[in-house]
Amino acid sequence: MLGHLSHEAVIQAPATVVWKLYGGLELARLVEGDGGEGTVLNIIFPPGLGGAPGYKEKFTKIDNENRIKETEVVEGGFLDIGFTLYRVRLKIVENGDDSCIVESTIEYDIKEEDAANASLVTIQPLIDIAQAANDHLLHNKQHKNV
């Protein structure tokens, strides 16, 4: 069973700045690679968040020219509950000199016998990341102008 979720968020910063932020490795522990395609990250959640304690994801596409990054879960997480594919795609689109749009997409495939678990997929964490990125960049911009 194939599924797809998407969301667009406006970030009040230039696309080049947002791309640098989204392309960073600060949010996870690097398992292998240099941050380019093929890099594997170990994503570990703090205790108490519920669900799986973490998973490993691999950067399957990084297109710096078009500002597109794709990752796929390669171990744990959604793969442990019947998903055969869980992919996140982020695209940063220019929206004038001082803003851009973050297009977030989740694509997944799940075994028919585990189809009920598809309800666990949510775009909300990507919405939250976009909001945090916007807040962070606005806060830093204000401090630079002071």
Rank of each mutant, 00 (worst) to 15 (best):
A118T: 01
I44K: 13
N140Y: 12
T122P: 02
F83A: 00
I110V: 12
Q131K: 15
L137A: 09
P125T: 01
T16N: 13
I44C: 06
I43R: 15
E32F: 05
I110E: 00
E65S: 06
R87V: 12
Y55W: 11
K111N: 05
I106G: 01
A13Y: 07
D34C: 04
E70T: 11
D34R: 10
K20Y: 11
E8F: 11
P46Y: 14
R89M: 08
H139L: 13
V18T: 10
A28Q: 14
D80F: 01
E65H: 10
T60M: 00
N64H: 11
H139C: 08
L120H: 10
L41T: 07
G48Q: 06
Y108D: 01
L27H: 15
E65W: 14
H136F: 15
G76R: 00
G77P: 00
E72N: 13
I68K: 13
V73M: 04
A115V: 12
G54C: 03
V88Q: 03
G24E: 10
W19A: 11
D114Y: 14
G24L: 05
I81D: 05
H139I: 08
Q12Y: 11
L21M: 09
R67I: 05
R67P: 03
Q131S: 07
K20L: 05
D98A: 12
T60A: 03
V31W: 10
L138R: 12
K141F: 14
R87L: 10
E103N: 13
G33A: 07
V18P: 03
D97Q: 13
E107H: 07
V10N: 13
Q142L: 15
N66A: 06
H143Q: 09
L90K: 14
G50N: 03
H143N: 07
R89K: 15
K91E: 10
L90V: 14
G76Y: 02
G33W: 02
E94R: 10
I11S: 06
Y22R: 09
V74M: 04
N134L: 02
C100S: 04
A132T: 01
E75Y: 01
E107A: 15
G48E: 09
T105W: 02
V73D: 00
A133Q: 03
H143M: 14
L85C: 08
V18H: 01
I129D: 04
P14Y: 07
Y55I: 02
V88D: 03
I101W: 03
A132H: 11
L137R: 00
K91Q: 15
E113K: 07
P14Q: 08
R67L: 04
R89D: 04
K58L: 01
E32M: 05
N145H: 12
D109G: 06
E65K: 11
E70R: 04
Q124Y: 12
A118G: 03
